[in-house]
Computed example of a mutant assay.
Amino acid sequence: MCVFSRAFVSLSQNNYTEAHASFTEVLKVDPKNPVANNNAAVCLLYLGRLKESLGQLEGLVQQDPALYLHESVLFNLTTMYELESSRSTQKKQALLEAVACREGDSFNAQCLKLV
């Protein structure tokens, strides 16, 4: 079974430690893989490592916005903001500004959960 498949099987079984290890293994080969990065961060969240998870996604969005400013990453990031801070609305608005600079009208702003 390939590493990606093993990671998703672990996720489906709520085995976040094993899933994170598998996604990390994928990232050793392909460090910019957006799916593996996003899912590794979600695993960290479920493992109770919110700050580390948040740092990972924020770092990705800042390093390579063209690759990581998409709906699934932003949805997870805004969810983490809600869990982390009472200032989540301000942080979400900053993401909206970043998206507005790069994306067109076709972007689904609902993923930022501002309403």
Rank of each mutant, 00 (worst) to 15 (best):
V35G: 05
V35M: 14
Y16T: 08
E25V: 07
L114P: 03
A98V: 14
Q63Y: 07
L50P: 04
K28T: 15
N38M: 07
P65H: 11
V42T: 07
P34G: 05
V26G: 06
K28V: 07
E82A: 09
S72F: 01
V3L: 13
V9C: 00
F75Y: 13
A94Q: 11
C111A: 04
R49C: 06
L77P: 06
F8Q: 09
D30E: 12
E84I: 04
L67A: 12
Y81N: 01
V73S: 07
E58I: 04
K51P: 05
L112F: 08
A66W: 10
H20R: 12
V35D: 09
T89N: 03
C111T: 09
L47K: 10
Y68N: 09
A21F: 08
S12N: 14
A66R: 11
E71T: 12
E52V: 06
K32T: 12
S5R: 12
V29T: 10
D64L: 09
P65G: 05
N14E: 14
G104P: 02
A19Q: 07
M1I: 06
L44E: 08
V26F: 01
N14S: 13
A19Y: 01
A100Y: 10
L47F: 06
K28A: 07
S72E: 05
A7S: 06
V99M: 14
H20M: 12
E18M: 13
V26W: 00
L60A: 01
A36R: 01
T79W: 11
C111M: 14
A41P: 07
D64S: 12
P65Y: 03
L112W: 08
S72H: 08
F75Q: 11
S10R: 08
H20D: 13
L57Y: 13
Y68R: 09
